[in-house]
Amino acid sequence: MGGTPSAIARDAVAEGGAFITLGTMGGPVADGKRSQPANLLVAGSDLYIVDAGDGTVQQLAKAGFQLPQVRAVFLSHLHVDHTGGLSAILGLRNQTKVAVPLVVYGPPGTRELVAGIVASMRPAALAGYGIPGQPWDDPAAMVEVVEMGDGFTRTIGTMNVRAVQNTHYDFVPGSAEDRAFKSLSLRFDLPDRSILYTGDTGPSPAVEKLARGVDLLVSEMIDIDATLATVARNSPNMPERAKADLVQHLTTHHLTPKDVGLLARRAGAKALVVTHFAGGTAGPERLSAIVDLVRKTYSGPVTLAKDLDRF
């Protein structure tokens, strides 16, 4: 890791692949020190956004890359901390007349999400730059959607992509809710390395299986106490029912440091990167304690990612 953003960009392409953590702060409350969840996967000359939280375009520029270079976006699930930057990605590509349509891969509901964003873009697209008679590009023509389900697999560019449903949601298997809403973990097998991105998930045998033998495991992690304290400061008047639902979600649908270590060990991951710090940026003592907790169950290399780190 290290180096200037432009050097990072050059090196990533030269080396044939890199995973860059554009934003490492988990929701639902923004943090002034870390951007919202977003990542950049560099596969040779192809660029892919993996989750697109608020600020993705700005972080992409800081990393030394340009938005027209992005070939596709992968969304692990549709919570707004992972999708809030998609509107800017699509809108700015439309405004700068990027000719090649962007493909958005995501779980069920992605087509509806993108349709809503496209509808919100039309007034600005029609107005254009305010020049009478100026032609405009229909935003709908500049994006394609592929919805992924459990077991999705596809060769995209030089890599093979696989997805499994994880445990970020508790809907009964086969129910209407389960069919309509899914959270996915994604594996990218490149010619020279393999990368597993958990997205948001609780402990999951399916994710462990998908991650088996992976070169780089990029995992979410939650600091429960810090997250609840942050939410309490941000929303002191949250209704009790909403608070109870949030506590249930945070404590069952995410991975603790111990859970992250167990996932890495059971998968036989060669290296572990921890991101999605729900709860905010802790001080150095707390971060060191988190690493110690992970290492109680995993003996391989562990890195707590920062924004714009490259792996």
Rank of each mutant, 00 (worst) to 15 (best):
G55I: 01
L67Q: 07
N94G: 11
I89N: 02
A61E: 14
G44C: 09
L47K: 02
N94R: 11
F65H: 14
Q95P: 00
I89C: 06
L75G: 08
S87V: 11
T96V: 05
Q58V: 13
A88R: 13
L86D: 01
V80N: 12
Q58Y: 14
A99C: 05
S87G: 00
H82V: 06
L86G: 01
S76R: 10
H82A: 06
A88Y: 05
A43K: 03
L90E: 02
P68I: 03
F65Q: 09
T56Y: 08
L40M: 08
V98P: 01
D81S: 12
V98G: 01
D81W: 03
S45K: 15
H79V: 15
I89P: 05
Q58A: 15
K97G: 10
A38H: 03
F74K: 06
A99E: 15
A52R: 00
V57I: 08
L92F: 07
G85A: 06
T56S: 01
L47V: 04
L60Y: 09
D54F: 12
Q59K: 13
H82G: 03
G44I: 09
A43Y: 00
I49R: 04
L67I: 05
V80E: 14
L92R: 09
V100Y: 06
K62Y: 12
H77L: 07
A38K: 04
D46I: 01
T56L: 13
S45T: 15
D54E: 13
Y48C: 03
V100H: 12
G53E: 01
A63L: 10
L90Y: 01
Q58S: 14
V73S: 04
G91S: 14
V80C: 12
T83R: 12
T83W: 11
D46R: 05
G64E: 11
L75Y: 04
P68H: 06
H77W: 12
L47M: 08
H77E: 15
V50F: 00
G44P: 04
V98C: 11
R93T: 02
Q95C: 00
Q95S: 08
G44V: 10
T56V: 15
I49V: 11
S87W: 09
L90K: 01
D54C: 08
T96A: 11
V57K: 11
I89Y: 03
I49L: 15
